[in-house]
Design a protein around this nucleic acid. Sequence first.
RNA 1: GGCCCCAUCGUCUAACGGUUAGGACAGUAGGUUCUCAACCUACAAAUCAGGGUUCGAUUCCCUGUGGGGUCACCA
Length: 476
Amino acid sequence: MKIRVRIAPSPTGSPHIGTIWQALINYSYAKRYKGDFIVRIEDTDRKRFIEGAEKELFSALKWFSLEPLESPIYGGSFGPYRQSERLKIYQKQVLKLIDKDKAYYCFCSPERLEQARQVQVKKGLSVMYDKKCREIKSGEAIKRVEAGEKAVIRLKVPLNEKIIVKDLLRGEIEFNSQVLDDQVLVKSDGFPTYHLAVVVDDHLMEISHVVRGEEWLSSAPKHVLLYQYFGWLEPVWVHTPIIRNPDKSKLSKRHGHASVSWYKNNGYLSQAILNFLSLLGWSHPKEKTVFSLTEFTKYFDLRDLSPVGPVVDLKKLDYLNGVYIRNTKDEELLELIKPFLKIKIEDSQLLKIIPLIKERINKLTEVEGLIDFFVNDFKLSPEDLLVKSGTKELVKKQLEEVIKILKDVKWDLEEITRVIQDIVLKNDYHKGQFFMMLRLSLTGKKISPPLLESIDILGREKTLKRLQNSLSLIEN
RNA sequence: GGCCCCAUCGUCUAACGGUUAGGACAGUAGGUUCUCAACCUACAAAUCAGGGUUCGAUUCCCUGUGGGGUCACCA
C-alpha cells in the first residue's frame, strides 16, 4: 500500500509549534517509506478564519524544510486541497448517508438546543442532542428542506453498539455508541463540520495513515462509524501525544511558547527546533540526541512514538540551539545573525567577530549584547573600574603603560598578545585583575569575548581612545 | 461530572519478564582559562501506591491515586 499522510491545519492563527511537530512526523514517515506528504487546509469554520494564516503556515513549513508534495499551493492530483473549495463533494457524499438512513435533517433552533443543553448541565448529564428530529420521516424532512426551512444534517449514531477504534499506539479502544452524540455533519450554512470533511477527504485523497493529535481520540469512533456507513476502508489511526506546557496542560500561549514565530523571533535555528521536536514522544536511538532532519527520516517510524504527552523544556532547546550555532559555518551564521542586530556593523567586521562569540551563545538574540561594544561607546563608572581592578594609582599606572606600548606596536594579534603579556609578567601584576581592568576599559562589560582578540578587531584608534577615556575618568 | 488516554530521575527518554535501572538537558563540585562560554572529570537524582500472576516484575493483570484529553452548527 502506498503511504500517504497529511497534516490538516485550519487557518485560524499563526502556526503552532505542535502543527510543526505533526508536520515533522508525517513528513518523516512519508520520506522513510517513500510515501507522499500532503497539506490540506481545513477552513470550514468561517467565523474563526484568519486572512493570511495559510500563507504564514506555508512559509513556516518552508523555513523548516518540511514542504509537502501536494497542497493548495503546489497542487496535486487529489485537489482541491482547501476544504472550502470542496463543498460540492461533501454535499454529494452526505446525500448518500441520507439515502442510507445513516444521517438525518435536524430543524432544531439554536435556542432550543441551548435550552436542552442547560437542562442537561443542571442534571449533571453529558451534553448531547436529544435526537428529537431523528424521528421525522425522511420524505417529510426533504419537503421541509425544499420549502426552504433551515436545517443541519446529523449523523445517525446507533443506539447501543460497541465501536472499536484501532489505534496504532494504543491498540483497540472500545466506545459505547451511547456516549456518542448525533454529531452535526453539515451546518446550516452548508459547510461541513470537521467530522464529515475529514473522513470524506482522507478517503478521497487516499490517506493511508491518519496521524493527528490525541485530542481527536474521543471523536475517532464517530469517524470510524462514518467509514462503516460509507462502506470505505479505514485508514490506520495514529493518535499522537499532545505536547505540553511545563504545567502539563496542552501547549498554549498562556503557559508556554506555542507559536512558531516566538521561536523564530527568539533566535532559534530551524534545524535546532526540528531536532528538539524530534526528541519529543519518540524513542530515539540510544545515546544520540543530536541529529539532522535527514538522519531523523532514516530512523523514524510511527510505531516508535510513545503515547505519553511530553513537556517542552526550553533549556534543552537552548542547548541544542547552541550546538547548531557552533556547527554552523561563520559565513552562514553571519546571515542568520544580521536580522537580530540593531547596531550597524560591516559584514567583514562581523565575520571577524563571529569566531569569538559563536561558542558562547545559545541563541541569536544574545549576539548583540556581546558585541555592541565594537561599535558603540559606553559609559564606564570609575567606581566600578576601581573596585574590580585595584587602587587608583595602580590602574592609572597600568593604563599608561598599555597606552604607551600600544601606540606603536605592530597591530596584529600575535604582537598585541606578546606585549600585553609582557607587561603583566614584568610588573608581576595580578593577571585576572589586570585583564578585568582592560576589559572594563575597552568594553564596559564584566563579561565579553576574549580580550586580546577583541583588541585586535577593535583597531588601534578605538582602543587607544577608550583607554584614554578611562584614564581621564579615574584622574578626576 | 460522564467517557477515553496516560504514568521510569526536575525535563526528554533507554532497559527479549532476570541490568549496580542506562543516556541527554538542567543542577552541584572540580579541572582548563584573561571574564563568560566551550571542553573534560566526578557527584546527586526515578520505576505513583496497593494487591495479584511468576522462581523472578519497571515490564503482564486488577484496584486506587495522580495527570491529560474530550463532551459545539470549532477544528
